[in-house]
Each structure stands twice: as structure tokens, then as C-alpha cells.
Simulated assay, not measured.
Amino acid sequence: MADTVHTHALPAEIFQPEDPLLVSERVAVAAFLAGYSGGTRVSYTTDLRIFAGWCHDHDLNLFNLKRAHLELFGRWMEQQGRMASTIARRLSTLSSFYKYCQIEDIITKNPAANVRRPKVDCESRTLGLDRNELGALLVQAGLGDVRDGALMTLLALNGLRISEALNADIEDMSTERGHRTLAIVRTGSKHVTIPIAPRTGRALDLYIGDRTIGPIFLGVQGGRMDRYCADRMIKRLTRQAGITKRISPHSLRHSFITAALDAGVPLRDVQEAASHADPRTTMRYDRARRSLDRHATYIVSTFVAGATRQG
């Protein structure tokens, strides 16, 4: 394969002068990543780059590893303080990469096939905002820059992934059967059309103004706004709203899901709104929410107190 793929055709995020991968390894990684796009490609690229750096530091070749090496990589991530979900995802990425290499006859055996992965909590550990905090944050966003207000409203009231919001263009906005809508590309290159609440629509119209084409959200240089800029903006607004939690763009998605569940939206409808392929993913948010609010201790305390009063 190395004889037929030219290095100048490799993706920019892989072929870097300082990259620890050898040319043959670079080609294999680039070919593997070519089958993915969007957030999945970005995630896989990050995982493989980190693993390649670890291999380089330990004088290891990507194509000459054993299961024990990947187990050691997992332990190293634990020592670095990585979350169990992050470790499990990276080991899953490596399993997919080595499976590809095995199919392409680059290696004879997948060293990651039986690597033990950490157990991931069934509850989401992402910090979310409660109803009052979410309201306060939206009020704060509305007092500032119109771009901030538009993005915060879209994230909080539609639960979009930050990549979905930032990749949307003005041309993707429309009207369908009386609903303001936005066409977005979700995980797995799935194209969907979502409704926009009147409050969100007004915020977007105010920000977009007379523009008719191009990205909805613009960066300071006039190009498409990037996720790092969005992250900084959200953290700034969170501080200004007096919220002490460490909030990220995903926290707003988490807040949307839990707010929908608290408002009584059926789990199946929340799953669809969040574009979760598996209902168990949505249920993770539901468990995290109910574990405190609906804990049996409250019912038992009331039950026992009633028996005491009767006695």
C-alpha cells in the first residue's frame, strides 16, 4: 500500500514534520481515517496521535505490538488522570485501527482485539445546569453580543453538539409547515431537519441580519467560528452569570436533555431530539438526574415517619 499512496496526498492533520509516525505508519493511519469524516475523524485522529506519541516515547513500532503494550497504554492513561470513558474510547479506536490493518494484510493479528477496557459508569458524569442556572445563563448571553446570544440559545434549547451548530450555514435555515427549521449533519453523516423555537429563531435573525449565505456563526477573522472560540465564550458567560460549575459546550447539550426529561418529555422523544442511536445513551442522563431527585431514601423516610406518627 505504501507504494501506491503518495505522502503529499495525506491529510494535513496526520502528515506533520514533528509527527512521530514513520511514513509507512502514516500511510496506514491516513488510509484508515479516510473512511471517516466530521467529528468521528477528528476524534480518531486525536486518539491515534496520542497513541503514536506514546509508542514513540517507548521506542515502539505501531505494527509490532502485543496486547500487553496496549494494556500498558491503558494504565498510562489512568495515571494521567483520564476518565474511564476516554480510556475506553481510545482503546476502541485502536481496536478498529488494528482490525483495519489486519484486513489490509498490514499485520497478521489484531493486538487490541481482547484488550480489557475500563467499565464506564452507566450515569453521565458531565456537569449540567439546572433549570434556574440555564435560565440565568441565557439571560446573561442575551445581554451581550448578539452572536453569543444566538449560539447559546441554539445549544441550550435544541441540544445540538457544538460541531453541528458551528457547521451549519444560513442556507440550511428554512420554513416547513409553519415551523422555522435548521438542517444539520449529525454523527455518521446523518442529515436531519430540526425545528427551531421562536426564541431561538429571533436570536438567530438578530445575529444574521442581512447575510444570506455562508456560516451562521462567524469567527473574529470573518471565517467560520471554531469550537475553541465557542468554548471560551461559554466559560466567560458562565462566570458572568455567577455559575461556579465548570461548563463546556457539551454541558449545554446535557442540560437540554435533562431539562427535557424534567419537563416530562417522553424518553423516546428525548432520544430522537438528542439523536441518540441507542436509548441507553439517553437513559444515562435520566439515571444521573433521577439518582438524587427520586432516590428511594425520600420515600422510605416519609414512609417510616408516617408509621412513627401512627404509633
Rank of each mutant, 00 (worst) to 15 (best):
D269L: 13
D105L: 12
L151A: 01
T93I: 04
I170Q: 10
Q80C: 05
P118T: 09
T281C: 03
I184Q: 02
Q221I: 05
G209K: 07
L160T: 05
D59R: 14
E171F: 05
R232W: 01
P198N: 01
P20Y: 04
A31V: 12
S255V: 08
T126M: 12
T238D: 00
P20Q: 06
R287E: 04
A28Q: 04
A277D: 11
T297P: 00
T93M: 02
F51P: 10
L154I: 10
L129D: 03
M1F: 07
C101M: 08
L65T: 13
S92G: 14
R224K: 14
H250D: 11
A203E: 09
G214N: 13
S85M: 01
D148A: 01
R161V: 07
G142P: 08
V5I: 15
F217L: 03
H295G: 13
G242C: 08
C122Q: 13
Q240A: 10
V29D: 06
H179R: 10
V304L: 12
G223S: 14
A230F: 02
R280H: 07
Y207C: 06
D59H: 14
I184E: 03
Q221H: 15
V192K: 05
L151I: 10
S43K: 05
I216K: 01
T40R: 05
T193I: 15
D59P: 04
I106T: 13
G214W: 09
A84I: 04
E78G: 04
T153Q: 14
R161L: 06
G142C: 02
D121P: 05
K99T: 15
A84D: 13
